[in-house]
């Protein structure tokens, strides 16, 4: 049971980070391998705010998300938008370039070591039920992610902004024709995706660790979530993240000698048999 619980917690974390990738990939058709770099930025921001400035943890989280989103917006407006119509290969090369730059910068600013993070007291304890030990932090993580997942679903499915986003993606020209500012919608969406990555990165310091190799180490996990969940699909991402989180934790716990092999195999098999993902509709455009 504890393994299952930890798996769910790490799955939720995966969801938070990868849902932004799912949105940029599925809705905006941009292969952003630098997504993990934004998560890393969020992580470093959070740690710096906590340890150097002395901001309390609960305030550092939204700050990290907002600051990461700002960085995302700047990059989107200056660089990313030039490549919306480029080939996937160019997008990949471009974002790998960003990843390399982010790794080097992180190493330069913070060094190669893991970053320490001290959680506030109320998130540190354990809640023990018969047969189940719940870390308070993991419980916090699960609840917070559920709230965000619900909010996202509402945002895309039930608001004017969501409708504009779906229209912009389905047919940018027609959307422009009915007066939607497609560029602004894309910028906001990109900002939202990076904000979530930043938040996920900040929350993940405790569980995933944080060092300069973060963007490369976890990018495959994020891609798997998108591949399995179907790109652009929020519910799909959530379910895929949970499956992956539980499989990963259980795999490391019960059959450590196989390691991450299973995860990669699952991804390849998925891509081959259901390229549109478990819950996917066909990718936009």
């Amino acid at each position: 049971m504890t393994v299952l619980f930890d798996g769910v917690a790490s799955g939720m974390l995966l969801f938070l980070i990868s849902v932004g990738l799912s949105v940029t990939l599925g809705l905006m058709n941009f292969v952003n391998l630098a997504h993990g770099a934004f998560a890393m930025v969020g992580g470093y921001l959070c740690v710096s705010l906590l340890n150097r400035v002395g901001v309390p943890f609960l305030a550092a989280l939204p700050l990290a998300a907002v600051l990461t989103a700002l960085a995302g917006v700047v990059l989107e407006r200056t660089l990313y938008r030039r490549l919306y119509t480029a080939t996937h290969l160019d997008q990949v090369l471009f974002s790998i370039g960003l990843v390399f730059m982010s790794i080097a910068s992180a190493q330069f600013l913070f060094g190669a070591q893991q970053q320490p993070l001290t959680l506030p007291d109320f998130l540190r304890g354990q809640i023990s039920l018969p047969g189940l030990d719940m870390g308070a932090y993991r419980l916090f993580l699960i609840l917070l992610s559920l709230v965000i997942a619900f909010g996202l679903q509402r945002l895309v499915g039930g608001t004017r902004f969501g409708a504009e986003l779906r229209a912009s993606v389905d047919n940018p020209r027609a959307a422009r024709g009915v007066g939607i500012n497609v560029e602004r919608v894309f910028t906001l969406t990109f900002a939202l995706g990076t904000a979530l990555a930043g938040l996920g990165g900040a929350l993940g310091v405790e569980m995933l660790g944080l060092d300069p190799s973060f963007p490369v180490k976890y990018i495959v996990y994020f891609l798997i979530v998108v591949a399995v969940g179907g790109s652009g699909n929020i519910t799909g991402s959530l379910v895929a993240s949970l499956i992956l989180g539980v499989l990963d934790v259980a795999g490391k716990y019960y059959v450590p000698q196989i390691g991450a092999f299973v995860i990669y195999a699952v991804m390849v098999v998925m891509l081959i048999f259901r390229p549109q993902g478990l819950f996917g509709r066909r990718a936009a455009r």
């Binding site: 660089l79 030039r82 090369l93 370039g97 960003l98 730059m101 080097a104 330069f108």
Partner: peptide, 19 residues
Amino acid sequence: MNPEYWQFWLGALLVLVVL
């Protein structure tokens, strides 16, 4: 020079080449 610089300029080069 510092190996980290190398990776940074490598990434920058990649971005510039693509653009």
